[in-house]
Computed example of a mutant assay.
Amino acid sequence: MTPVELSRTVLHAVRRAVDEGELRVTVPERAVVTPPGPGGCGDYATNIALQLAGAAGQPPRRVAEILRSQLAGETALADVVVTGPGFLNFSLGRNASAPLVEEILRRGRRYGHAEGFSGTVVRLRCPAEVRAVVVTDALARVLRSQGDVVRVTCDGPPVPEWETVLGVVGTHPRSHTSGSLPDLDVTVHPVPAPADPLPLGRDAARWALLHPAAHDRPRIPGDHLVQRETNSLFRVRYAHARTRALLRNAADLGFHPEPGSVGGAEALLAVLGDHPRILTAAAHRGPDRLARHLVAVADATLPLLPAVLPLGDEKPSAAHRARLALAEAAGAVLAGGLSLLGIDAPDHL
């Protein structure tokens, strides 16, 4: 069960409670599902009971208990627990990883993207400064992934190398823009880069400018090019390249990925399931959210990889195929996220 599917399941429970007269509320359009916070438990949690309590005229915990009873028959849920003032916490069933992996493999690098026009036109404005232009370019890519139409304008003419070296596209002097007024008009003005990032090359330069939050001053050192664990970009690209290598090696051994139950991979499943929410957050708060999420995905992926292939004379089993499918899904999320940041995800490092 993916977070989107779990959100729908929660809304169906609210609707059943309303139909049966247990709650007198308007069914909301969505239920926000996130990893559990402090004091929570299981795989996911939602605060919908707290949101509905006022309109329902009942304490949040009572609303949560009503919804918990409505969710009792859901076979994809191993357990539903109420914690704190009224948070619903969900533990997914043993085979719950399979639908999430199937969904990611079906969508590939476009997992988490909108499937149509959102109805929103956004104009992004930025000063003619290298970090502002790169952040704006990445933000435009993320917004487009969420179905928005994006126009990008700049206070002055961009430096030609920003396009040829850094891969920035679609940025024009503000005086060149025309057309109807956008739904949203956003000015992107992060803390400027302290040095010229162009000597780092496209991928390392973009990562150096995008990974820090907009209010933090980026570092432009040469260690962005060093292949070691302390380099976060290297960890992300290395994790992706390892998943691709495992697929090649598995094919040589005669077996292929098949989604199924994977024990001990809860952290990885949680960050993969959270990817659509992160893309939405990055569209509103900046591409640094996506960059840091990719580091979390890579760090959760790497411990899985040594157990993917059979060892010695061991024959490939259903567990190996399921772990291979999960590794492929993680690789797809890493590649798709890097693409939105304008960074390559090579199959070989």
Rank of each mutant, 00 (worst) to 15 (best):
T136P: 10
G337A: 10
G21S: 04
T153C: 10
S97Y: 03
R277Y: 09
H348Q: 09
T301L: 14
S7F: 05
T153V: 15
L71K: 08
N249Y: 04
R289M: 11
H172S: 13
D183Y: 00
E74Q: 15
P85S: 14
D148R: 12
D185Y: 04
K315Q: 13
S69H: 13
E65A: 11
A298H: 07
R237V: 01
L143N: 04
S317T: 14
P99C: 05
R242T: 03
A291G: 03
L77F: 15
P38G: 02
H240P: 04
R110I: 00
L105N: 03
R248K: 10
T136M: 08
R107Q: 10
D148I: 06
V150D: 01
V165N: 05
H215I: 11
W207E: 09
L67I: 14
A245H: 13
S97F: 01
F255L: 08
V308D: 07
R109Y: 01
V142G: 02
P197S: 12
D299I: 04
A76C: 11
P35S: 06
A56H: 04
R217V: 13
H215M: 06
T171S: 09
P257W: 07
S261A: 15
A208V: 00
A128V: 01
G39D: 11
L294Q: 01
T120Y: 06
I278N: 02
R123D: 08
S91D: 12
I278H: 01
W162H: 05
Y111V: 03
L349I: 15
V81A: 14
A335T: 10
A64P: 12
R289E: 15
S91C: 12
P173F: 08
E163T: 07
M1Y: 10
V14T: 02
A205I: 03
K315F: 12
W162K: 05
A128H: 09
P199Q: 11
D288C: 11
P346H: 13
V165D: 08
A332P: 05
P85W: 15
E103C: 03
V165G: 03
G263Y: 03
R244L: 11
A45C: 10
T187C: 03
I343R: 14
S118T: 10
F90V: 15
V168I: 04
A281L: 14
N89P: 04
H348E: 09
L198Y: 13
P221D: 15
A329P: 11
R321E: 08
L67W: 13
